[in-house]
């Protein structure tokens, strides 16, 4: 299962790679990363058919995660539509409502609970 992680923080990358060390080693999950919404869209142009799940931060300079979600739902929603999970440090109602309205599958708050994330991923990969 290929997962695209979108976050402007660079250190998110080694963190995911280590947290999912076993899964990666067993070829259960493969990660790709983008550091902005724009970069994510560029990536999707080429590889949207490969990506099963997208994890995106909401609060990023430039294009926000919500806007990215909007683009994904409009341009890359061909079946099977990718699962999109939004992540934010601001776990408030407004953010949650917006994300859900725009078609997010799930909503997670920072700091990320990786065990919970793993549980959720399991349900989506089945």
């Amino acid at each position: 299962m290929k997962i695209l992680v979108v976050d402007d923080e660079e250190d998110v990358q080694p963190l995911f790679l280590q947290r999912f060390r076993k899964e990666i080693k067993n070829h259960e999950i493969e990660f790709d990363f983008a550091q902005s919404g724009e970069e994510a869209l560029n990536y999707l142009k080429e590889k949207h058919s490969e990506v099963v799940l997208i994890l995106s931060d909401i609060n990023m300079p430039g294009m926000s995660g919500i806007e990215l979600l909007d683009h994904i739902r409009h341009d890359y929603n061909m079946p099977p539509p990718p699962v999109v999970m939004m992540i934010t440090a601001y776990g408030d109602e407004e953010n949650h409502r917006q994300a859900m309205d725009k078609g997010a599958n799930d909503f997670l708050t920072k700091p990320l609970d990786f065990n919970l994330l793993k549980e959720k991923l399991k349900t989506y990969s089945e």
Partner: peptide, 10 residues
């Protein structure tokens, strides 16, 4: 919060 998350996570 961001750096603290990293400290905790790493």
């Amino acid at each position: 919060q961001n750096p603290l998350n990293f400290v905790n996570n790493f």
